[in-house]
């Protein structure tokens, strides 16, 4: 069923939004139904520069090959702390994956 919105209901919503938007911060956030994560990003760096990596000249010679079993790295970060009931992302699953890669 195609739902229609009257011009009056649009106007009502816009009017309410304008009232909310013009209100002080705390009151407005409270009224907004949106779950808003107050996650402000830290300032980004400029990525172009003219430096050379210091003291890491050997790193360029290490071999990397993930064909077959040569790739042995498994994710070992905060993903291990994440709860997942249905998909294979839990801590135990990672261990299993590691075993599979090694075997």
């Amino acid at each position: 069923m195609n739902k229609t919105l009257t011009a009056a209901s649009l106007a009502l919503a816009l009017g309410a939004a304008l009232t909310v938007a013009a209100a002080p911060v705390a009151a407005a956030d409270e009224k907004m139904a949106m779950e808003k994560e107050h996650c402000y990003g830290v300032a980004l760096k400029g990525k172009n520069d003219c430096k050379a990596g210091a003291g890491t000249s050997c790193a360029g010679t290490s071999k990397v090959d993930y064909q077959g079993n040569a790739w042995t790295a498994v994710p070992t970060g905060s993903c291990e702390k994440t709860v997942s009931k249905t998909s294979p992302t839990g801590y135990g699953q990672l261990k299993e994956f590691k075993a599979k890669m090694a075997g």
Partner: peptide
Amino acid sequence: SLLIDSHGA
């Protein structure tokens, strides 16, 4: 000696 232009010091 091999000096690296690190801009890090």
